[in-house]
Design a protein around this nucleic acid. Structure first.
Lengths: 347, 347
DNA sequence: TTGAAAGCGGTACCAG
DNA sequence: CTGGTACCGCTTTCAA
């Protein structure tokens, strides 16, 4: 791992000064060439670039940011979990856009815990990020203080939020759950079930459940919930959550799941038990995830523009960084997919 | 967004000097208190901490790293794609471990392209990361030069690599494909199929395919491949890849997929066409992904410790940072899962 | 237990 | 077109 010469004491990093000296010019001239800001001759440029190449110079952006009044090119992005496909898609949308504009994502997994978020925020802010994109709208008091004081572009995503700390993009999860509830109630269902995961933090999924529950309450139906503690909302969780729900409540007619992957778990459980969908039981998911595209029957679900949310969030941060005008709050909406895993309207 | 006082010209960041002044001590004393390195009285500590709290001071780690000869706490982590569950799991393993030891992940999506990796490397290295974890073993010459010159801990993951640039953890993908080929050939299959995606870069999946092909060649069987260009290896890709493969090759007896999700797509396609698995056709996946846990029949596949690879990679970087001894190359191995989506041994 | 001065690697600003 | 100088926020070193 030793290069041609191991002159430097502290680390093998080549500095601008060394490059400049080797090229026989001043630091300033070398700096100008590297930033291509003009004000130097062609011959100087050639000399400097040759040395850059020869010495393998990698600029120290820390120093750059530090020197000027600039911000770094980091954007802190927090999502609750990487094991959840939905957030992974949002993250992908964000990173793609950010990278295209010369920024980098500094990841934060908050695991639905306010303290985790707070700890991450503290650290990431100390690196002078150019912006912040965080999932969710509820934060600890300390976090809010940090966010307020940071003065950098901030986007709260996922939940639509008409009064964000700074900016926000997402959708109304309560409405989304409510609309599914209305749809199912409209089909004549009376005995509702719900299967999802549960966390300490108020989150989007619980808002959907609240919307769903509201319809049921208003329409005089019954609701049985199966909330799995601290589990990731995936295929298997849906499978055994359904098992548990049905074991305790034989008469549930339709089940709404936290997401499509869980509902596919439910679908498999029903198949295993010989329950016909939708004749014996109805199944509804959320999120229109990839698995839905290959199911033999269209899954009743709600489609949401995951990638788009990420893209918009990144665009908002970028626009704000560049001082362009930005709409503070955007609602990307959702789309109910009727599907064929719930019964048709009763005549 | 305006705090109590908007005194500063450039940005509202509170500096150590301001805290020190407000507390009536010198910068150094304040610095000592904040780092808790001793050498100050209890009363000074109280004064300083009070001001830190009151002013909402957030240290500028950029300056810290810059001033001392320290490294940052960043670790650059590159994966090919976020849309691929497998890598997402690896990433989760990495980030969990890293965060537990006070480090942060700076994300890089290389999209299987060497130039993307190179560009990302250049940027991320300029931020003086404490370490690097990158997926894959093939890099551009420029990338290799950058990596060599960086002098920071580096782990190449995914492919087992006996002569890594620095360190490596992964498994032998060729062997993994070979073992599946042997297993299937041992069951009497002669006409093999493969469905996967294809990229410019030599990657792990192509190594598996090569191992699989080798067995087939040696045993005198036939191999029909369906390589989907630039597609993400997911459910739907598996579905229509199977459709295409079978349309062109009616007599394929067993199909090996790039991963489990694709094979589930294949399973669904077969069901749709009324093909019985394993009677009419055999299906084998790779990766033992979550979806496999809820299928009615055990999927023939290969299990791999995704999270573990991530954890080990992070541990290697951490150990190296702390100057502890590290094994340079680790093979986590793989495990063939016989399953019931291929036929039983022919008598 | 405390503080003053130097310097990390760049860039802004001005003078030549 | 080029170079000198001050300085960004913090830590290291040395002296008090």
């Amino acid at each position: 791992m030793s290069k041609s010469q191991d002159k430097s004491i502290k680390n093998n990093k080549v500095s601008l000064a060394e490059v400049a000296k080797a090229a026989g010019v001043s630091k300033m001239t070398a700096s100008r060439v590297l930033r291509d800001e003009g004000g130097f001759s062609e011959s100087t440029k050639v000399k400097v670039m040759a040395e850059v190449e020869r010495l393998g110079y990698v600029p120290n952006r820390l120093a750059t940011v530090f020197a000027g009044d600039q911000k770094s090119t980091f954007v802190g992005v927090s999502i609750p979990e990487l094991g959840n496909e939905i957030f992974t898609q949002v993250l992908e949308g964000i990173d793609r856009k950010l990278v295209a504009f010369g920024h980098q994502t500094v990841l934060g997994m908050t695991e639905h815990a306010l303290e985790q978020e707070e700890k991450w925020l503290e650290t990431v802010l100390s690196w002078q990020p150019a912006g912040l994109i965080i999932t969710g709208r509820s934060h600890s008091p300390k976090s809010i203080q940090l966010l307020r004081g940071s003065g950098i572009p901030l986007v709260e995503i996922w939940d639509h939020n008409t009064s964000p700390l700074d900016m926000s993009v997402g959708l109304n999860h309560f409405d989304s759950g409510y609309s599914m509830g209305r749809y199912l109630a409209g089909l004549g269902y009376k005995k509702f079930g719900y299967v999802g995961t549960s966390h300490d933090t108020a989150n989007a999924a619980s808002a959907r459940l609240a919307g769903y529950a509201k319809v049921i309450e208003d329409s005089g139906g019954s609701l049985k919930k199966q909330l799995l503690l601290k589990d990731a909302p995936g295929f298997y969780t849906g499978f055994y959550g359904t098992e548990q729900l049905l074991a305790a409540n034989h008469d549930v007619e339709v089940i709404y799941y936290q997401n499509d992957n869980m509902s596919v778990g439910g679908l498999q459980y029903c198949q295993k038990r010989g329950l016909s969908v939708p004749d014996d039981i109805g199944i509804a998911g959320w999120g229109d995830l990839p698995i839905a595209s290959i199911l033999p029957h269209r899954l009743t679900s709600t489609s949401v523009p995951h990638l788009r949310i990420g893209q918009i969030a990144a665009e908002m941060v970028l626009a704000q960084i560049n001082g362009e005008p930005v709409k503070r709050a955007q609602d990307v909406g959702f789309n109910l997919i009727p599907g064929s895993t719930v019964r048709s309207k009763v005549e």
